[in-house]
């Protein structure tokens, strides 16, 4: 019963005052199934990537932490191929550091922080972790490539475009425009999409 009152307040807060670079919403009006997006922070290999997450809120929330999982593949020492995250605040004490003073908003911020600052000493992906430790350059290249491959909006848009191609009738002749740059920009965006 605590879960309902808590989520009501949390969801209201998340929609009016979302943390920087984070969006969170209910999936099909289910109270215990939320979705979130984290925008990769600048100066990280995840920059400009949009990462989708699934948040399952257990019956005993907030006495138990929510289960947070990445839906978008991410190349990170502490996130495995199933999207599971190795982060202490996502686990109950004594192993973890979850407590009811935390909430979904602070957890998502922690995940965002973990993305920027991996913790290679507590790895979930041993090979990515050793790469992060001993060959940072290669790690950055791989992480950027994954971000581009799986998390960029352009990529996703192009998939939809393919699905929607029968419905969307694209204008074939670019109209003559005022302004010098618009055509270039238009072309670029069209290429991207």
């Amino acid at each position: 019963m605590q879960r309902a009152s808590r989520l009501k307040r949390e969801l209201a807060l998340l929609s009016t005052e979302p943390p920087p670079g984070i969006t969170c919403w209910q999936n099909e009006n289910q109270l215990d199934d939320l979705r979130a997006q984290i925008l990769g922070s600048a100066d990280t290999p995840y920059e400009k990537g949009i990462f989708n997450l699934e948040i399952v809120v257990p019956e005993r929330y907030p006495f138990e932490p929510p289960k947070i999982r990445f839906l978008t593949p991410i190349y990170h020492p502490n996130i495995d191929s199933a999207g599971r995250i190795c982060l202490d605040v996502l686990k109950l004490p004594p192993k973890g550091a979850w407590r009811p003073s935390l909430n979904i908003s602070t957890l998502l911020t922690s995940v965002q922080l973990l993305m920027a600052e991996p913790n290679p000493d507590d790895p979930l992906m041993a090979d990515i972790s050793s790469e992060y430790k001993y060959n940072k350059q290669l790690f950055l290249i791989n992480a950027k490539e994954w971000t581009k491959k799986y998390a960029s909006q352009q990529k996703r848009a192009s998939e939809e475009e393919r699905n929607q191609s029968e419905t969307s009738t694209k204008e074939s002749i670019p109209q003559k425009r005022k302004g010098s740059n618009i055509n270039k920009k238009e072309k670029k965006s069209r290429l991207d999409s």
Binding site: R35, K48, E160, K170, Q175, E186, S189
Partner: peptide, 23 residues
């Protein structure tokens, strides 16, 4: 960049792509 649930974001993205020439 749009942030949010796919079912709301996708229509917006499609509108952006289709109406871009009206800018």
């Amino acid at each position: 960049y749009f942030l949010g649930a796919d079912h709301v974001v996708n229509p917006l993205r499609i509108k952006l792509n289709n109406n871009m020439h009206l800018w």
